[in-house]
Simulated scan of single mutants.
Amino acid sequence: MAYYPHQSIPDYYLLDDLLTDEHRLIRQSTRDWVEQFVMPNIDQAAQQHQDLPSLMKELGNIGALGPYIPEKYGGAGLDQISYGLIMQELERGDSAVRSAASVQSSLVMYPIFEFGSEEQKQKYLPKLASGDWIGAFGLTEPNHGSDPGSMETHLQDKGDYYLLNGAKMWITNAPICDIAVVWAKAEDGKVRGVIVERAMEGFTTPETHNKWSLRASKTGELVFRDVKIPKENVLPKVKGLKGPLSCLNSARYGISWGVIGAAIDCYCTALQYSKERIQFGKPIASYQLQQKKLAEFLTEITKAQLLSWRLGVLKNEGKASPAQISMAKRNNVKMAIDIARESRQILGGMGIVGDFPIMRHAANLESVITYEGTHDVHLLITGNDITGFNAF
């Protein structure tokens, strides 16, 4: 049994008819890069707990970093559907690859573009778009995950500069970041965003080891001990939790697309295997229970595709609400992790080895279902939206 790259993706409801020629070209070019750069190397990287070499530069070269940022700042000036399709193809390769691009795009470049000064945009965005600089996003803390309003990281105004103290954890790209967009409470209790640079004294980024998930991605902490933050490094155009939460909305939208890619890779692998695996004299694809699984996989993928496509249209029109984004993130990640688990069963014992991508996707999705808002928190966001009662 061999694992072959999948050159096409399921499109049962002909959603390609709703895409532009540019959308399809962007998707294909990203897919080609994933087939050439990610697929041959990702199993070894995950097995050895290493990131892919030169990943951020490669992502910059294909325009996957901040693709919706205007060209004047180094982005590609693409729409939200294009961003989603890029995320889908990256996560078909691995969630760690999509996470790296998602953090750089939605959690670092987006807040600098939306809330930064012109000087900050000119200084940071082109280098982030090219992958010359790697960014991290600091919101989650050791004691505060789903409740960011209780963060302990704080800023003190020292006249000519701010003093930053505290710690963030579970931070993608932390050990290798050149800058970090960090959210901290000022003395007035308002949350502010600051740009912390690698060379600043008192800033350290210890790596998180022994992960069973996202093993091809660097994760770590951001630790601040009396870090002097120049006042020009504060994001001037936002105060309060609106800043970090708007970043998370952008990232969650990208995740809703990305996990479709992981689900597709599992589905295509299971379908291919079921046609070739002979038991009791015929392919297991000819048995009812396997057909039930495969038919349900395709149904759920199709539903997720429709959900993310419509959300992308709403994003392009400026109409997508945070609650709508939460629904798509929650539904699609659950869809993908369920398909990964059931696909593993179709492959039997072969499903646990690195020759096939399924166990790797399943382990990665255990992180994706938790980060950027847990599965349960997104359910409560929807519940709050439809009832008017806050259950937090």
Rank of each mutant, 00 (worst) to 15 (best):
Gly74Glu: 01
Leu18Phe: 13
Gln44Thr: 13
Asp11Val: 05
Asp16Gln: 12
Asp16Tyr: 11
Pro67Ala: 07
Glu22Ala: 09
Met39Asp: 10
His23Tyr: 05
Ile62Tyr: 00
Asp11Asn: 10
Glu71Met: 11
Leu78Met: 10
Gly74Val: 03
Glu71Gln: 14
Asp16Arg: 13
Glu58Ile: 05
Arg24Gly: 07
Gly63Asp: 04
Asp17Met: 10
Leu14Gly: 04
Leu15Tyr: 12
Asp43Met: 11
Glu35Arg: 11
Thr30Gln: 03
Leu59Asp: 01
Asp21Phe: 06
Gly75Ala: 02
Leu59Asn: 02
Pro67Met: 08
Gln48Ala: 11
Pro67Ile: 03
Lys57Arg: 14
Gly63Met: 02
Leu19Gln: 07
Thr30Ala: 14
Asn61Phe: 05
Arg24Gln: 15
Asp21Glu: 15
Gly63Trp: 02
Asp21Gln: 13
Trp33Asp: 01
Val34Thr: 03
Pro40Ala: 04
Gly63Gln: 03
Pro67Asp: 05
Gln44Asn: 08
Ala64Asp: 05
Leu19Arg: 10
Arg24His: 07
Arg24Asn: 10
Ile69Leu: 07
Gln50Glu: 15
Asp32Phe: 03
Met39Tyr: 11
Tyr12Cys: 05
Asp11Thr: 06
Glu58Thr: 09
Leu15Gln: 06
Asp51Trp: 03
Leu59Arg: 01
Ser54Leu: 12
Asn41Ser: 08
Pro40Gln: 06
Gly75Tyr: 00
Lys57Met: 11
Ala64Tyr: 04
Ser54Lys: 12
Arg31Ile: 01
Asp21Ile: 12
Gly75Asn: 02
Ile62Cys: 00
Leu15Ala: 00
Gln47Lys: 10
Glu35Cys: 04
Ile42Pro: 00
Gln48Ile: 04
Thr20Leu: 08
Lys72Arg: 15
